[in-house]
């Protein structure tokens, strides 16, 4: 749908007269961030493994990378992990879906209608400042300890940053866009869909990134308290059974999921909003 902006990281200045260098060196130079990042992770893992081998730490308490890999293999080959992983994915998926459907239209409207904005701003600020975990007992009291409560906590955690970001984006709308829409006699629906939403998209995607991070925390916390399954519950039970390898393996899966999701949104931000940088 769009021309991707030239990705500068892939273009290397090859000034004439400079000696040629091997391709991997060129790649390494232009990807120095990735190279250093991987290197940092490797150092930590190797140090961890070494301390375990040297007996500096007790592996039954701390586990070590190789044992985690083994645990990971057995968790996936036995299929034991799919249940918890699926449960968490389902909570986060439904929670985020509902969050998107509620927060984006609400944020767009609140940003446009000043009276509504003034009315809701203090409430939203308070709700955003109070740690959402605090609402968990109330949610349990109202909705019980089923999956609904877990999804509800995810929504509760994720929705505020998205509303706040969307609203901020709308209030920063370039007044020229509004004048063009008015002059072209755009109806309300056209205005919201074809002007306001795309103009606010950079803010919305930033909000989604914050939201997902909070949704993951919300889901795990909910699983700790509402022991019904999921990765949080899995890590918790593994730990209390002194199965540190499985617990660490669960944490590692969570970390990968978080990084993948954040990267995904980052990619969307670059693809959909390349125009806002240029």
């Amino acid at each position: 749908m769009s021309i991707a902006p030239p990705d500068e990281r892939f273009s290397v200045d090859n000034t004439e007269g400079e000696p040629m260098e091997p391709a991997w060196m060129t790649w390494g130079r232009s990807h120095s961030k990735v190279v250093y990042g991987t290197f940092g992770v490797a150092v930590v893992l190797i140090a961890w493994q070494l301390t375990a081998w040297l007996g500096l730490v007790n592996v039954t308490i701390s586990s070590d990378p190789i044992r985690i890999i083994r645990a990971e293999i057995s968790l996936f080959s036995s299929g034991q992990i799919w249940g918890p992983l699926g449960a968490t994915a389902q909570e986060v998926g439904w929670g985020m879906l509902i969050t998107l459907v509620i927060s984006i239209p609400l944020g767009l409207i609140l940003g446009r209608v000043t009276a509504l904005y003034d009315m809701t701003e203090p409430i939203i600020n308070v709700l955003n400042s109070v740690p959402y975990v605090l609402f968990l007992p109330v949610i349990i009291f109202w909705f019980g300890i089923g999956e609904e409560s877990r999804i509800l906590l995810v929504i509760w955690a994720a929705t505020m940053p998205l509303i706040i970001n969307t609203t901020a984006g709308v209030r920063n709308l370039n007044p020229d866009y509004l004048r063009v829409a008015k002059m072209c006699c755009a109806g309300r629906w056209t205005f919201y869909r074809s002007v306001l939403f795309p103009a606010t998209l950079p803010y919305i995607l930033t909000g989604v990134r914050l939201s997902i991070a909070r949704a993951l925390v919300g889901a795990i916390v909910a699983e700790f308290f509402l022991s019904g399954g999921g990765l949080g519950y899995f890590v918790q039970t593994a730990t209390s059974n002194f199965d540190m390898d499985s617990a660490m393996a669960g944490i590692f899966i969570m970390a990968v999921a978080a990084v993948v999701l954040t990267r995904l949104i980052g990619r969307m931000e670059r693809n959909f909003t390349h125009w806002s940088q240029g």
């Binding site: 020229d176 004048r179 063009v180 072209c184 755009a186 795309p198």
Partner: peptide
């Protein structure tokens, strides 16, 4: 109205910017 500053929608390509006026009406 031809605005003093071009006021194009940066997320739309040239053709779609022109089509916006038609779409709106």
């Amino acid at each position: 109205l031809v605005f003093q500053s071009p006021s194009l929608f940066p997320w739309r390509n040239v053709r779609d910017n022109v089509l916006f006026a038609l779409q709106a009406q």
